[in-house]
Design a protein around this nucleic acid. Structure first.
Length: 834
RNA sequence: GCCCGAGUGGCGGAAUUGGUAGACGCAAGGGACUUAAAAUCCCUCGCGGGAAACCGCGUGCCGGUUCGAGUCCGGCCUCGGGCACCA
């Protein structure tokens, strides 16, 4: 054994041995209790960053811990390998996306292995390989059959810089999530997946996500955005047509003073004969900073009071939500209020605050203006109805229900539920993605590629100019094909799939290992592998995927369930969203110049130190403040552990392992008893910190305390030596999930056979962990006045007597009467005097 | 604007979920070893007062409940995150 800790010698040695023995290979064995531990797979951008190190260190601790607890652990890794950066690299540097991607994967895989992560690499997936993406295509065809995949023309978010469509989730603050360009609206034919069909189920199941952070569940709920309301028809005056609106506030129906249509609404073209005017307003559709309207010159009739109100086209009314038309109640909706002010439309209050009604401050009957009050803004709260015919005087929440019932009874409207969630547009006008397996035939129209012809291979021989649309448009060998239906001339779909499709089911692909999943065959009976491994027991990743990836995965899993492939609905039982890695007050990024290079870190301190620091500096869910000095502290701690073993290498190697046996406490020195107790307390503390909340920071702190104590321990007897050995071996076992290399090396150095990773997690003895004495705190009137060492396990009466007999107590209580004495067992005594 | 979180030493963070505030680590100061430096080891380390024992104050601010509040309740302030014409 070397005198000094040198991770450069230790780490490659064990990485080599783990790989040679294929130690982390997982076998499908239904007799064992499984644990599926998964971290979000990376995009192979070139090199890993500290965020990855943290993410994968957290996951690896969990996987290694669960293995030591006797679980059959599935812990796989792969590559989210399709995506725009590869294509941008092709345009910029002339390197093919495939070459670029696979080279990055090779490099990054080396980096992950240098971190000592315990993956079963036999299950590695690479989403850009035809073996993977053929199943994307297969799922697409199944969805096409079931009507879940469909094509429609719609307004889509278009990134002019990336020249592609973006899903709503990919638009951040009106900008492209990837390149930050301002997104514009464009009308295009696109492929969609009908995620809205699962909206209700996805929402209802949110309440079952008890292992997820509440914050994430809430974000999912808000994104799905279920709201209850009514649809009401407003007849257009002088026409048989009517405008169907959706509102969540039927209680304000009497206050509707105009109706607005979305520019793309079919009735807009009908009511506005002037093409130029309509186009002008349509071009403003989706513009967020300004409300623009166009009066159609037409009127419609409010069905509850027969009132004639004007019809506008308004740029802020969304075609994709509700019916694409709204009733406007400026008195009770701020957006309508702003619009009414701009176009000088009347504002009529129909809900008054309850306290105003009591004070007689209600709007005069028939007038729009409240008596003694004028509205400066919309009143959106609950209140009491006024100016609302027979509903006046009713509370707004009750009126919402009553008016809805009234409308239904009269056949004027219908209760309706709406969701914010839209169908998922998956078409991307890009090369580096999964080809959508359909062809366009001159005779037959849209034809699905038959399953036997899958995969539709992405052609390699394309040119990347960076101009215009997808390079696939120039690839005649790809483009021109025969129609699977009639054999005639057909053209392939050139759009590829959103890469979020790839990541929506990769956790299912892992379950099959190297084997072809053969989903076609699995249709007949549910796959046993899938049934065994799914759902993922612990998923670990960044919170930035709280909506997009997680929602899509929940959707895909349900579709796969409904195809009869799995019985599992919810893919991730427990979710841990780790915080960001911060340095100098900002998230690490190249543009900020505050990145720490994992390669440098591993080279200088080793991966055990890198892992240890990123686990110790903060609990996993919180942001981690990077500190170069803190890293050195972690290295110092590992060196101290090394030195402890080195110093005692003679005795540690000599005695047989006694970790399981508690030596006779009588033969121990007092110090020996203390170390033994501390050892068992530490096993208990580390175990519960991992089990409870994955609070590795406090677990590591406890290990540091133990090592600090053991370092000063001078054994005086054979029994003491056994205690020392037990303390050291338990330290190494507890350390193994966090810093596996040094744990293996020192495990071997203390005369044990490899591998520590395969050992059982230590158990503590509650009796040995028990304190002999406790420090009794004495409070007078809640203030700390003294401390007393007392034997463990005294009765309340005995404790009280001791506390009252203490000299300190007498000083503080003299001349006062004792009103009350409160005893908190094992903690403190509070004496109340007055 | 709406919906969530979070505010504890010089810093990162602990505190059996109502019971000793500041574990552990970093930084800082002092000391030992060394020709010297690095490394290592030991001591001090919330603020104020005191030579000391000790005393007072202290978990963003104000109030409340309680024998006792970082923790519970009410009201504010600040910061962070998510959503944002969803009718």
């Amino acid at each position: 054994m070397d005198e000094r800790y040198d991770p450069k010698k230790v780490e490659p040695k064990w990485q080599k041995q783990w790989a040679e023995k294929n130690l982390y290979k997982t076998r499908f064995d239904e007799s064992l209790k499984k644990f599926y531990c998964l971290e979000m797979f990376p995009y192979p951008s070139g090199k890993i960053h500290m965020g990855h190190v943290r993410n994968y260190a957290i996951g690896d601790v969990i996987a290694r811990y669960k293995r030591m607890r006797g679980h059959n652990v599935l812990h796989p890794m792969g590559w989210d390998a399709f995506g725009l950066p590869a294509e941008n690299a092709a345009i910029k540097h002339g390197v093919h996306p495939s070459k670029w991607t696979y080279e990055n994967i090779a490099y990054m895989k080396g980096q992950l292995n240098k971190l000592g992560l315990s993956y079963d690499w036999d299950r590695e997936v690479t989403t850009c390989s035809p073996e993977y993406y053929r199943w994307n295509q297969w799922f697409f065809l199944r969805m096409l059959e079931k009507g879940i995949a469909y094509r429609k023309s719609s307004y889509v978010n278009w990134c002019p810089s990336c020249e592609t469509v973006l899903a709503n989730e990919q638009v951040i603050d009106t900008r492209c999530w990837r390149c930050d360009s301002v997104v514009v609206q464009k009308e295009l034919f696109q492929w969609f997946l009908r995620i809205t069909q699962y909206a209700d189920e996805l929402l209802a199941a949110c309440d079952g996500l008890t292992g997820w952070p509440e914050k994430v569940v809430l974000m999912q709920k808000n994104w799905i955005g279920k709201s209850y309301g009514v649809e009401v028809d407003f007849r257009i005056e002088g026409s048989d047509e009517h405008i169907r609106i959706f509102t969540t506030r039927p209680d304000t129906l009497f206050g509707a003073t105009f109706v607005c249509l979305s520019p793309p609404h079919p009735l807009s073209a009908l009511l506005v004969p002037d093409r130029v005017e309509l186009e002008a307003i349509t071009s403003q559709y989706g513009k967020v900073d300004e409300k623009i309207g166009l009066f159609t010159g037409r009127y419609c009739i409010n069905p509850v009071n027969g009132e004639k109100i004007p019809v506008y086209i308004a740029n802020f009314v969304l075609m994709e939500y509700g019916t694409g038309a709204i009733m406007s109640v400026p008195a009770h909706d701020q957006r309508d209020f702003d619009f009414a002010k701009e176009y000088d439309l009347s504002i009529r209050q129909v809900i008054a605050p309850e306290e105003n009604v009591g004070a007689g401050l209600v709007p005069a009957q028939g007038s729009g203006q409240p008596q003694g009050l004028s509205l400066h803004a919309a009143f959106e709260d609950e209140g009491v109805l006024v100016n609302s015919g027979s509903f006046s005087g009713m509370r707004s929440d009750a009126a919402r229900e009553e008016i809805a019932k009234y409308l239904e009874a009269k056949g004027l409207g219908k209760k309706m539920v709406n969701f914010k969630l839209r169908d998922w547009g998956i078409s991307r006008q890009r090369y580096w993605g999964t080809p959508i397996p359909v062809v366009y035939c001159e005779k037959c129209g849209i034809v699905a590629v038959p399953g036997k012809d899958l995969p539709v291979i992405l052609p390699e021989d394309v040119r990347f100019t960076g101009k215009g649309g997808s390079p696939l448009l120039d690839s005649t060998s790809f483009l021109e094909t025969a129609c699977p239906g009639c054999g005639g001339k057909a053209r392939r779909e050139t759009d590829t799939m959103d890469t979020f499709v790839d990541s929506s089911w990769y956790f299912i692909r892992y379950c099959f290992g190297k084997d072809e999943p053969g989903l076609d065959a699995k249709m007949k009976s549910m796959s046993r592998e899938l049934g065994y491994w799914m759902p993922v027991d612990q998923y670990v990743g960044g919170v930035e995927h709280a909506v997009l990836h997680l929602l899509y995965s929940r959707f895909f899993t349900r579709v796969i369930r409904d195809l009869g492939i799995t019985g599992c609905s919810e893919p991730f039982s427990n979710l841990l969203t780790q915080g960001m890695v911060i340095k100098d007050g900002a998230k690490m990024s190249k543009s900020k110049g505050n990145v720490v290079d994992p390669d440098y870190l591993i080279d200088r301190y080793g991966s055990d130190t890198s892992r240890l620091f990123s686990l110790f500096a903060a609990p996993p869910e919180k942001d981690l403040d990077w500190s170069d000095k803190g890293v050195e502290g972690a290295y110092r701690f590992l060196s101290r552990v090394w030195n402890l073993v080195f110093k005692n290498r003679g005795v540690l190697k000599g005695t047989g392992t006694i970790a399981a046996r508690g030596p006779e406490t009588a033969a121990l020195s007092e110090e020996g008893r203390r170390i033994l107790r501390k050892t068992h307390q530490t096993i208990r503390k580390v175990t519960s910190d991992i089990e409870k909340e994955y609070h590795f920071n406090t677990a590591i702190a406890a290990l540091m305390e133990l090592v600090n104590e053991v370092t000063g321990f001078e054994p005086r007897s054979e029994a003491d030596i056994e205690v020392l050995k037990s303390a050291v071996e338990n330290t190494l076992l507890l350390l193994a999930p966090f810093t596996p290399h040094i744990a293996e090396e020192l495990w071997e150095a203390t005369g044990n056979r490899p591998f520590i990773s395969g050992r059982q997690w230590p158990a503590w003895d509650e009796g040995l962990a028990k304190d002999e004495e406790i420090e009794l705190v004495i409070q007078i009137n809640g203030k700390l006045r003294g401390k007393l060492m007392v034997p463990f396990g005294l009765s309340d009466e005995e404790i009280k007597k001791l506390a009252l007999g203490d000299g300190k107590t007498a000083e503080w209580t003299s001349g006062k009467s004792i009103r009350k004495v409160i005893v908190v067992r094992g903690r403190l005594v509070n004496i109340v005097v007055g």
